[in-house]
Nucleic acid binder design. Sequence first.
DNA 1: CTAATTGCAAAAGCTTTGCAGCGCA
DNA 2: TGCGCTGCAAAGCTTTTGCAATTAG
Lengths: 134, 134
Amino acid sequence: MNHNDQELKKAGLKVTLPRIKILQILESAPEWHMTAEDIYQALRDAEEDVGIATVYRVLTQFEAAGLITRHSFDNGPAVYELDRGDSHDHMVCTETGRVVEFHSVEIEELREKVAKDNGFQVVGHNLVLYVKPL
Amino acid sequence: MNHNDQELKKAGLKVTLPRIKILQILESAPEWHMTAEDIYQALRDAEEDVGIATVYRVLTQFEAAGLITRHSFDNGPAVYELDRGDSHDHMVCTETGRVVEFHSVEIEELREKVAKDNGFQVVGHNLVLYVKPL
DNA sequence: CTAATTGCAAAAGCTTTGCAGCGCA
DNA sequence: TGCGCTGCAAAGCTTTTGCAATTAG
């Protein structure tokens, strides 16, 4: 009963092979953003017989449980990443495709402020900067 | 030869009925964000015989020409709005679906700063706040 | 005239769902 | 044992594309 198993239990999810494997894959993700298809391929590479439908179902559950975060860059497939507690945003280089993560407390505060000024509170956000080298 | 016709010519696009109608619909959009399907329905309501494929093609061309802007909120259908020159961001209410536009000079400045700190310059961005009423 | 544009239908890409069987607690 | 979970296949939804016919310039 390791740490991941406990995370699953805490989320009210049974500890099953697909869920454990998917968590492991996300943990060891070389680059921190994977599509459902990426994860599905990683599972097949590991000889695990998990269907793509299960991958989607598990990812949806993980997101609901707050274990992972889902991003929709542009209109391609959604990407998922482990929620390591450090909320951050993304910068995508239009020339190289490189994704840089960043975190700005000031921007975070302004987000709250702008929402409050309009009678709302922030429950989530999505900020992507498309950039190119100076 | 009205203003819209000139916009089309300037973009190197022939002045055709579907393109004129779609521009008009976007101009008179009650709420400023319409999906391709919304536009398609508006055309059918106006008894215009335009296919959904043409709607998508025209919207893609308009975006390339800088006449309109396309947004992908969450993972639903993309929404389009006329580019009225005023850059702004969006706040989407998770309970009512209402979309509020806002513009923060401070956030804009911070975007530039963060990019520069990482050796980049901003060429575009996408910021959506998911909010709920206070 | 002729290259651009269009409608239709089919296909593509991503994601969800129905269902019967399997497995964790 | 019982309900949750899973794989498979099929369906769903948004968007794109092939093609022959039409049209703007």
